[in-house]
Design a protein around this nucleic acid. Structure first.
Length: 222
DNA sequence: CACCAGGCAAGTA
DNA sequence: TACTTGCATGGT
């Protein structure tokens, strides 16, 4: 039914057409830029409303300090953690959030991220959302890019792109936008991975608040 | 100089 | 529920 729907349903065809165009124009992104699942989790928190370039600085600092493990982040002082992640902004808030997320790994995963991430997706998402500092996008980023769960990640770029192409209202809820993708695109982890990464890349290059529609690869899709 | 970036939680009504 | 505000660095 999914395959048939993608041929007959106009929305499904448009969404897949967007993916095809982006992949052809931009190429595979190789996301998530991290070496371990726990690094994905840390990056997901640090990149909240923050340019990735700044996040990379912060992660490099953590790496160099040997603090990119649950045990290390659990032990380090809040003050030192905040100082190390300073380049990524909101450093006091994010230091606490990293502690909170790490606490989940410690108590639920016994300090072993894969053990936490192997939980049933619904349970894992609920547990992640219960952490103060983890919202829908952060949780879903961890589900998709660390746990390999086929769930679609929505971010500010995705919302902007969909609304500019008449596929959604500008103020549509996170859940609604996520449902739009997941109702029309088969739940494939690699596909969802690439699609979200491509949307972010398009956002970076063309779909800014002041759009650069002249050279946008999605020109002419409405 | 102003504006933006791969959000989220807490406070208010 | 819906809206507002604080959080903060670094790039353009």
């Amino acid at each position: 039914m999914v395959g048939a729907e993608s041929e007959s349903n106009p929305t499904a065809r448009r969404l897949l057409e967007i993916f095809d165009r982006l992949l052809a124009a931009i190429g595979p992104r190789g996301w998530w830029p991290a070496e371990t699942p726990f690094e994905v989790m840390v990056g997901a928190v640090l990149t909240q409303n923050t340019a990735w370039k700044n996040v990379r600085q912060a992660i490099d600092n953590l790496k160099q300090a040997g603090l990119l493990s649950p045990e290390a982040i659990h032990r380090v002082s809040l003050e030192r953690l905040a100082r190390l992640i300073k380049p990524s902004g909101y450093f006091n808030v994010k230091a606490a959030r990293l502690k909170n997320l790490t606490a989940l790994v410690m108590e639920a995963g016994g300090g072993d991220p894969p053990r936490l991430l192997r939980r049933p997706p619904d349970r894992l998402r609920t547990d992640l959302l219960a952490v103060n500092g983890v919202g829908t996008e952060t949780a879903d980023s961890i589900l998709l890019y660390a746990a390999g769960v086929p769930i679609f990640v929505i971010d500010a770029y995705t919302r902007r792109i969909l609304s500019r192409h008449g596929l959604a209202e500008p103020d549509a809820s996170y859940d609604r936008l996520q449902k739009l993708f997941m109702d029309h695109i088969p739940p494939d982890t690699d596909l969802y991975n690439e699609y979200h990464a491509l949307l972010v890349a398009l956002g970076h290059r063309f779909c800014k608040p002041k759009p650069l529609c002249d050279e946008c690869p999605l020109q002419g899709l409405g």
